[in-house]
Nucleic acid binder design. Structure first.
Length: 572
RNA sequence: UGUCCGAUGGUGUAACGGCAGCACUGCAGAUUUUGGUUCUGUAAGUCCAGGUUCGAAUCCUGGUCGGACAACCA
């Protein structure tokens, strides 16, 4: 039996609660057994990893249960929305690997239908034109613990409502002077049922309908009806809309929608440690130039993660692993990093790059000899090809890979000790040369064992450590952008009195260094994923040119030596 | 002193009245020409108090704690 078959028979052992509902609905043949979801972003910002979870959920569910998923832009507020955002959202959804086919919709496509629905509500006496100012409406709404007051315009005759509403649409009133309100219950314990606004007058051009409309429907009035128009069966959203559900249902009831009735289901949004996720805060980081735009590799935006070097596969895996539930959560960013490494380990090419070089000279190696060493492009790939790495007498190695006076567990190079140069020879440290003034090591002198060449090793030697290197004469200079978490604290929103989340920013979240790579680094192009061996995964930044390659550090390799060091430092 | 929602190891998430499992993280070990990967082992949990039941994480009652809701934002 295939794994899939197994899942189907033992399925209800691991379904999330939304899938439970879907199974139940399928079982009851609700909506003729159709599953149709939608991803409904507002085009007023860039998508982030939290949206990615929602995208994976909506498109994933549709796929799993043989349904469809629409992309719908919830574009009912022309003041904050733009095509720039529409375009970025489309790019991001596509990049994540999802296809909305021909179903690219806009709430603004339905402005006319919504207007007609609203006329219907007015005729039924379920909506009225209110002439109070925004402030007055707020003041009469009451509080969660006190009922509101009814508007003086609440019981105006249907005919008058119709006339006024039409005039509102025709642009006869200034912005903000009148609204259309649903007539529900000003004393409802649910604030959203206290005669919510359905339309407001906004004399602002819309990025799609331009100047056709000067009244715009609100979210509550738009969303459920758009779901209905699109034949959506399961309208999945985040928890803060839970209190809106009675209103969502009320509108459908008043419109007497019984067939193909959509249903709203809420789940808990994703939060990540060491990250902020609200659009407002992300916008603030961009506008204050704390980061270099929405796609700064430190941003949790999809475009940021893409530029950082995350693969869509790893983000999908992550979305799967975080689960779906209704309780508030903060996912450890280590899980995201784990998913990233897991995938990159399988697909990334390898290269040796020295970040913080010190010169190593092999005294018994011929002065002008160059050997071509062979390295696997990706040792995890059984069909991997080889790459050629030139080896010479004078090399760069990592300064951290040498210690003059090492602790016991140090497996790397130190005076009198042996180590393997990866893909090449075993060497032994004979002496060091220091700068007289600073005491800084300028050269490490070694001897090599000619019988120890990789692949044809007859030396019989066993060494504990293997280090990477680059031939000085062949080294390719490159720029490495070492990204780290943007914030110093797990939950940046927890701050002292009078401070805000920005006080938790880590000033060292980006370090730019010049590094020296083996010749193959020249061949990587924008977006290429490469593991700098023993260091981390990197991705070529779009700012790169042929002469000047820039590599963004996506994530470091796990580093158990660093842990040992940390522990030793603590003890000391 | 409202309404709604939620509460299971450090973090997530399962268990649908019948052995509290999985993943990440941590720790220990094996393997390793990446201190990577892989593999093995290990630590750590049902918010509290009652009740129903042969049996409760699960059902009931009461509490505690956390979150959402008072835009003409979504």
């Amino acid at each position: 039996m295939s794994d899939k078959g197994k899942n189907e028979t033992s399925s209800h052992t691991s379904l999330n609660f939304i899938e439970e509902i879907i199974r139940e609905d399928l079982h009851n043949n609700r909506n003729d057994g159709r599953i149709h979801t939608r991803f409904p972003p507002e085009p007023n910002g860039y998508l982030h990893i939290g949206h990615a979870k929602s995208i994976c959920l909506n498109f994933g569910l549709a796929k799993k249960y043989g349904g469809k998923c629409n992309l719908r832009f919830d574009d009912t507020n022309p003041m904050t929305e733009s095509v720039e955002y529409v375009d970025s959202i489309k790019e991001d959804v596509r990049w994540l690997g999802f296809d909305w086919e021909e179903r690219e919709f806009y709430a603004s496509d339905y402005f006319h239908a919504l207007f007609d629905f609203a006329i219907g509500l007015i005729k039924k006496g379920k909506a009225y034109v209110c002439e109070m100012s925004g402030e007055e409406i707020a003041n009469t709404r009451g509080t969660p613990t006190r009922p509101g007051k009814e508007s003086p315009w609440r019981n105006r005759p249907v005919k008058e409502n119709l006339e006024l509403f039409n005039k509102m649409r025709d642009g006869e009133f200034p912005g903000g002077t009148k609204v259309l309100r649903a007539k529900i219950d000003m004393s409802s314990p649910n604030m959203h049922m206290r005669d919510p606004v359905m339309y407001r007058i906004l004399h602002a051009p819309h990025h799609r309908t331009e100047n056709k409309w000067c009244i715009y429907p609100t979210y509550d009035w738009t969303h459920g009806q758009s779901d209905y128009i699109e034949n959506i069966t399961h309208s999945i959203c985040t928890l803060e809309f839970e209190v809106h559900r009675p209103l969502y249902d009320w509108f459908l009831d008043v419109l007497e929608i019984t067939e193909n009735r959509p249903r709203q289901i809420e789940f808990a949004r994703l939060n990540l440690t060491y990250t902020v996720m609200s659009k407002r805060k992300l916008l603030e980081l961009v506008e204050n130039k704390i980061v270099n735009g929405w796609d700064d590799p430190r941003m949790p935006t999809i475009s940021g993660l893409r530029r950082r070097g995350y693969s869509p596969e790893s983000i999908r895996t992550f979305s799967e692993k975080v689960g779906v539930a209704k309780r508030e959560n903060i996912i450890d960013v280590a899980l995201l990093e784990h998913c990233c490494r897991e995938h990159l380990n399988k697909i990334a090419s390898r290269a040796m790059v020295v970040m913080n070089p010190v010169k190593l000279i092999i005294d018994n190696y011929p002065d002008d000899k160059t050997e071509e060493m062979a390295g696997k492009i990706n040792p995890e790939d059984p069909d991997t090809l080889l790459r050629i790495i030139p080896f010479t007498k004078t090399l760069y190695i990592e300064r951290d890979d040498f210690m003059e006076d090492p602790p016991k567990k140090f497996f790397r190079l130190s005076p009198g000790k042996e180590v393997r140069l990866k893909y090449a020879y075993i060497i032994k440290c004979e002496s060091v040369v220091k700068d007289h003034e600073t005491g800084k090591i300028t050269e490490i002198h070694c001897t090599y064992d000619p019988g120890s060449r990789s692949g044809q090793d007859i030396s019989n030697k066993k060494v504990k450590g293997t280090i990477h290197w680059v031939s000085v004469d062949h080294a390719v200079k490159l720029e490495a952008r070492l990204y780290d978490r943007l914030f110093k604290t797990e939950n940046p929103d927890i701050v002292e009195e009078g401070k805000d989340f920005k006080s938790n920013l880590d000033p060292d979240s980006l370090k730019i260094v010049e590094a020296f790579g083996e010749p193959s680094v020249k061949d990587f192009t924008t977006g290429s994923k490469v593991q700098f061996e023993r260091n981390g995964y990197y991705s070529v930044d779009p700012d790169s040119t042929n002469e000047h390659k820039i590599f963004n550090r996506t994530v470091t390799l796990r580093d158990s030596w660093a842990k040992v060091l940390k522990k030793m430092n603590k003890q000391a």
